[in-house]
């Protein structure tokens, strides 16, 4: 049986000859439709590389990525990306940033009026309906990331890829946005692949957590199934023994079995 999204024995080597570095070795992952998967690991372990390969922004050295029965070879709107630093185009308004994605994706399938309506709807969904005509430099970091999420969701991707989406935000804003993402994901049933280095974020949001070993030649060390009912309440989880058990599992993996290489060197 094939999965919705299959990452099949992916190897990735950067460079050639003696200066070549092997970043990923035999990464194999199968994701079902509607699953929320987090990839966690120390910095430099190649977790963003995995995401970029699925996005099609990087090519595999060997191995393949198959989404919904078709091999992924280049970027496309069926795999929209929420970038770590939001990557909004600063010369476009909030509305136009989303419109760029919507107009491009649904040119043949939706009328102009439908597209306009859809842009509003997605921006309302992330709570940015009040700032349609603001430019990115006029809104806060958290708001920018909301717009980045809206832009990615507006393309109705088969899989939503998030590259440390909340990494650049302060803790309170981050928690708030995590709640929003949980709500949206349970409403829309998106398949999500998220790279993170935040243990709480991974446990709170995910169905499964993919823990990566340290690079070079990183691979999947362990996959942790998070068997907690959804929707999950941040506050209730704090006292939930099962939640804390999962949290401890991830911490043990990261800090006992696969210590931060930099910390070890120091």
């Amino acid at each position: 049986m094939t999965s919705y999204l299959s990452i099949e024995h992916v190897h990735k080597t950067f460079g050639e000859g003696p200066s070549a570095t092997e970043v990923l070795r035999d990464v194999d992952l199968h994701v079902e439709r509607g699953e929320f998967i987090s990839i966690i690991g120390h910095s430099g372990c190649g977790k963003s590389t995995v995401l970029n390969i699925v996005a099609g922004l990087l090519e595999t050295s060997t191995g393949a990525v198959i989404l919904d029965g078709r091999e992924v070879s280049k970027p496309g709107p069926d795999r929209s990306v929420v970038f770590q630093n939001h990557s909004l185009l600063p010369w476009l308004t909030v509305r136009d940033n989303v419109a760029l994605a919507v107009d491009k994706t649904f040119k043949g399938t939706k009328s102009a009026a439908e597209r306009r309506e859809w842009i509003l709807q997605t921006l309302e969904m992330v709570g940015m309906g009040h700032a349609l005509d603001k430019r990115p430099d006029e809104i806060s970091g958290g708001m920018k990331q909301r717009v980045g999420i809206a832009r990615a969701l507006a393309m109705e991707p088969k899989v939503l890829l998030m590259d440390e989406p909340f990494g650049a935000l302060d803790a309170l804003t981050r928690a708030h946005l995590q709640d929003e993402v949980m709500r949206i994901q349970s409403d829309l049933g998106n398949t999500v692949l998220m790279v993170t280095h935040d243990v709480d974020e991974a446990v709170l949001l995910s169905d499964r957590i993919v823990m990566m070993t340290n690079g070079p030649a990183a691979t999947i060390g362990e996959i942790l199934e998070i068997d907690l009912p959804k929707p999950r309440e941040r506050l209730a989880m704090a006292d939930n023994p099962q939640y804390n058990h999962y949290r401890a599992e991830v911490l043990r993996f990261l800090h006992e079995r696969h210590k931060n290489p930099e910390a070890e060197a120091a």
Binding site: P77, F83, L89, W91, K104
Partner: peptide, 27 residues
């Protein structure tokens, strides 16, 4: 590179890339 990646994910064609990304970014 962020803007280039956005353009690639959206699959902007050469002309769209020129007018929507390149000219404003280099302005």
């Amino acid at each position: 590179q962020d803007y280039v990646n956005v353009a690639r994910v959206l699959r902007l064609n050469g002309f769209e890339y020129f007018t929507k990304i390149m000219l404003p970014a280099a302005a």
